[in-house]
Design a protein around this nucleic acid. Structure first.
Lengths: 155, 155
DNA sequence: TTAAATGCAAAGGCTTTGCACGGCG
DNA sequence: CGCCGTGCAAAGCCTTTGCATTTAA
């Protein structure tokens, strides 16, 4: 968490808090920590992982129910996106100010790589139109073996 | 369930049964009915829906545990594909002899349309390669409002 | 002060599993 | 007859919910 990033995060959180207040909600440290963990995380985290990280990195106990409630709240506010890779556990990622992207997942080690592809972005709009749908969102997950796991299976 | 289709299904099931026997598994009427329901279904069904359909259409009671076990079995045999639209319930569809396709889902009524797009198919291979992944499979879900639901919201 | 947020534990969905019994080969 | 498959009920896992308590504004 370098200095520049901290400044960026501070600007974001200040903005966020003002927004929250205006809407009649209340700011809490729990939400701050969840946002902080998500903001700085390079990975897509589950509710349990977020809870553990807050405990380990900030030495603060937080109920997992609060984490779930907050995450759902953030999702409604479009700050957070849910990633469902099909293993029964939802993962969450910070979305604000981030370009849309899709995911490439290793079926062996679960490593997740983000990618974005303009051609795919364009085509999904066309497909939605062609079928009479008004596009909302999309999720594309490519499953495969990452380079590491691929080497292992060849040995 | 027209005559032509019945013939097709009979051919399939005969083949399938031979295959099963060779592998040391046993054929059961339960599995037959599950395959039949999936084969003829135009929709993507949940385990519960499959169980209910077998009860209603064939008047046969089948334990939902058996349905789940069979579906997992069929998935391993690549006969069935799991569709995870993110609402917590897995849906299953017959895959055998069917071209790969993706899904367009209405976020209001959950209507599912299948589509396939060559450009997207091509691009996902490129993306996997570019990132050092060996492609396995992919799932693309486009979320939007279908024409019906779109009209309703405008009224 | 007072409405919203938290934390705990209980409840809720969906799916899996253990075990005794039934039925295919 | 041996073993796999089934059915039931219980357990598991992730997530949500009810309720008393705490806390921000």
């Amino acid at each position: 968490m370098g200095k520049l990033e901290d400044k960026q995060f501070d600007i974001f959180i200040k903005n966020y808090k003002g927004h929250i207040s205006k809407q009649g909600f209340k700011n809490t440290i729990q939400k701050d920590y969840i946002l902080k963990v998500l903001y700085y995380s390079e990975h897509h985290l589950s509710a349990e992982e977020i809870t553990d990280k807050i405990q380990k990195e900030f030495n603060i106990d937080i109920g997992i129910a609060t984490v779930y409630r907050s995450l759902n709240f953030f999702e409604e506010m479009k700050l957070v996106e849910i990633l469902n890779i099909g293993d029964g556990t939802r993962r969450y990622e910070f979305k604000f100010n981030k370009k849309h992207h899709d995911h490439l997942i290793c079926t062996s080690c679960n490593k997740i790589i983000e990618f974005s592809d303009d051609i795919i972005e364009l085509n999904q709009i066309k497909i939605a139109e062609k079928n009479g749908y008004v596009l909302n969102d999309h999720s594309m997950i490519i499953y495969g073996l990452c380079d590491n796991c691929c080497e292992e299976t060849q040995e």
